[in-house]
Simulated scan of single mutants.
Amino acid sequence: MTLARAIAIFDIDGVIRDVSGSYRRAIADTVAYFTQGKHRPSPADIDNLKSEGIWNNDWEATQELTYRYFETQGVSRDNLKLDYQALVDFFQSRYRGSNLDDWNGYICQEKLLISAEYLDSLTQNGIAWGFFSGAPRDEANYVLKKRLGLENPMLIAMEDAPGKPDPTGLFMTVENIENKHNLPQDLPVIYAGDTVADIYTVGKAKSLFPQRIWLSIGILPPHILAESETQVVYTEKLTEAGADLILRNLETLTPWQIQRLL
């Protein structure tokens, strides 16, 4: 990539694929199961938790929602015997499904939010790209390789780095992209994500390496777009977290738009 102008890195959930009926449904299912059917968190409940900026891991978010329900019932989390691994296993049985070799769960129903042609357009306009996600590697690659048809996507996943908003994974992705394309180490970096934790990640990167340009793009996930009031609240939270730009869909972040931002 001899004419590289910038590096663009993307979160996956809510940006590349719609997880409102998969990950988020699995969260609700799992909380309902571990509260014996007494509480099923709404999409707003999950959004409110995510807006705290530290619950990027959906298994941990599920556990936290379960704890908080019992606390409203006067039960201390210290007195709960909540088996985290059992919670993860139940979650995965919903998300991946019952067949470990040929997944048949909610993941199979996810809608793609971008096309491979969009990524090609970035490459053709001097924008190197990759992915930094808190999803497990095999689940991230399910959408990148099997659904989008990417052969060898540059990906830093759950197993590779601490969870967001720790920026370590973002730095690793940047370095891998630079090495792959033999790029200079001073190109502007754009990170697009749909949660407060994603925006915080860029803020931490800025504070650690202020000599480089870091831009955070907030993407409104599909489940937010159905109600205008919800959009306003969600947009405000991303803005307060420090987003430089907020968009309804990643594909509206065109090469022209990127050049304009820079």
Rank of each mutant, 00 (worst) to 15 (best):
I27M: 11
L100M: 11
K146T: 13
T30Y: 03
I7A: 07
I177A: 11
D102C: 12
K146M: 10
Y142D: 12
K50S: 14
N179K: 15
A32Y: 00
R212F: 00
L144T: 09
Q257M: 07
E151D: 14
R94V: 11
Y84D: 02
V31F: 00
W129L: 04
G14K: 09
W59S: 06
F132L: 13
Y118I: 03
G242I: 02
G97C: 12
Q231C: 08
K180Q: 15
G169H: 03
Q259L: 03
T30A: 00
D166F: 01
D11Y: 08
Y67V: 12
T173H: 02
Q185R: 15
Q73S: 03
D45L: 09
E71D: 06
L225D: 07
I217C: 05
Q63W: 06
V15Y: 07
G163V: 08
K204Q: 14
V232I: 13
L82K: 07
D120E: 14
E71I: 05
F132W: 15
M1L: 13
I7H: 05
T168G: 00
E229R: 10
N79H: 14
D11K: 11
W214Y: 08
D120G: 05
A243L: 02
G134V: 09
I12N: 07
L170C: 04
L112G: 15
R68T: 01
P165S: 00
I27A: 07
K180F: 11
G74D: 04
I219N: 06
T123M: 10
M154W: 13
A8H: 05
T30C: 06
A26P: 09
V88P: 07
T66I: 09
L150K: 06
I213Y: 01
D101L: 15
R25E: 13
M1E: 11
A243G: 04
D78S: 15
A135K: 15
S93L: 06
R40M: 10
P221V: 05
F209P: 01
T35A: 05
K146V: 09
R24G: 02
Q259F: 04
A226T: 10
Y84V: 01
D89F: 01
R96E: 15
I224E: 08
H181S: 04
S207V: 05
A116E: 14
R40K: 12
V15F: 01
A205F: 02
I46N: 04
R68H: 03
L87H: 03
I199N: 08
I127Q: 06
L170K: 08
E236Q: 13
K180P: 00
G163W: 11
Q92K: 14
G126I: 06
A161D: 05
L155N: 02
N125C: 02
G134N: 13
V174L: 10
G218R: 03
R24M: 14
F171M: 08
N176F: 13
L100H: 13
G14P: 10
S98Q: 13
L187S: 02
D29K: 08
N179H: 12
I246P: 00
E110D: 14
Q259G: 04
L238F: 02
S133M: 11
